[in-house]
């Protein structure tokens, strides 16, 4: 037990960051708190993408599929059957695992460029269907629902209270980070990294590459779905836009800018990019041009993103 809690520099920084988030939550102005909630939800989405790309070298451009499935996975049961929050969340996660297995079974074994293309295609299929099947999804207008209260056994808390909402999301972010961190540092994570570095070698060593990559794909789908479900809860709304291909591009931007294969990098990416979009988007609707230039130039500046710069310049590691 003792060894597990050996303090590291990054561990201390993270602990301080979490304590800071806990303390400042109630003190923040409403607008900034709302932005921070978005950043925390998208951080889960970004880490889920990093597990897929940064740790198992599967570059997906279709993760919004699972974001949308997670959102509708909680919205529909709550709306139509009045289930409580935990049952709704569970339904969303199960839905994402089932579709993750199905879509992963087709796409994961292909790898490389085929994988990218297939994920785009299935994302577009889901997006078009969500636009078309308005009886189920509400299409472009979407569906609104009442967020059920958080029942912790001790008492019920309403998500309509912004402070409750803030801590609710923060708790999920911390849990997601811990689970994903432990996963990538477990023996399974080491095998994923081995596959990322050299798939043929990992295969020759006797590892079932397909199964490990499928596992990463499904776990990524699960956490992406969690982010989608939390986003639907926070907005009490979901629409076909939750499946949009633009939303699939966002974790790519965050992860590449922040630094892939680090889990923290993508969070930094969200924390930098989203405020830019939030503030620039107000007075310049073509802010995607900035993102576009960033994506074109990032590999010339630092192929490993911001975390790459931090690691080489500050911590002296390659």
């Amino acid at each position: 037990m003792k060894r597990r809690f050996k303090p590291t520099l990054s561990g201390c920084v993270l602990a301080i960051a979490v304590i800071a988030l806990v303390v400042i939550g109630p003190l923040l102005p409403a607008g900034l708190r709302s932005l921070l909630i978005d950043i925390m939800i998208f951080s889960i989405y970004a880490m889920a993408f990093d597990l897929l790309f940064g740790y198992s070298n599967q570059f997906s451009y279709g993760q919004a599929t699972f974001f949308g499935l997670g959102a509708y996975g909680i919205l529909l049961p709550v709306l139509h059957f009045g289930v409580n929050l935990w049952v709704g969340l569970l339904a969303a996660l199960i839905l994402c695992v089932v579709f993750g297995l199905g879509l992963g079974f087709i796409s994961v074994r292909l790898g490389g460029a085929y994988f990218v293309i297939i994920t785009i295609i299935f994302n577009m299929v889901f997006y078009l269907l969500s636009l078309d099947w308005t009886w189920l999804t509400g299409g472009d207008d979407g569906l609104t629902f009442t967020a059920p209260p958080v029942d912790l056994g001790l008492g019920q808390f309403s998500l309509y209270n912004p402070i409750v909402n803030y801590y609710f999301i923060l708790a999920f972010l911390v849990v997601s980070y811990i689970v994903l961190r432990r996963l990538v540092e477990s023996p399974i994570g080491k095998v994923l990294i081995a596959i990322r570095e050299n798939e043929d070698r990992a295969s020759l060593l006797g590892y079932n590459v397909f199964r490990y990559k499928l596992l990463a794909f499904v776990v990524s789908a699960l956490f992406t779905g969690l982010a989608g479900a939390l986003y639907a809860l926070r907005n009490r709304y979901a629409s076909a836009d939750y499946f949009s291909i633009i939303l699939s591009g966002e974790p790519i931007v965050w992860t590449i800018v922040g630094g892939s294969g680090t889990l923290i990098g993508p969070i930094i990416g969200v924390a930098i990019i989203n405020p830019i979009i939030y503030y620039v988007g107000v007075f310049w609707k073509h802010y995607l041009i900035i993102i576009g230039l960033l994506l074109i130039l990032i590999f010339r500046v630092s192929p490993k993103g911001i975390m790459g710069v931090i690691r080489s310049k500050i911590m002296g590691r390659g």
Partner: peptide, 22 residues
């Protein structure tokens, strides 16, 4: 600079696509 690495070309061409659209 990114030719030959499919994942990187995806990132760069997403960027190009955004600019062309906007």
């Amino acid at each position: 600079p990114v030719e030959g690495i499919p994942a990187y070309t995806v990132v760069v061409t997403i960027g190009i696509g955004y600019i062309l659209q906007q």
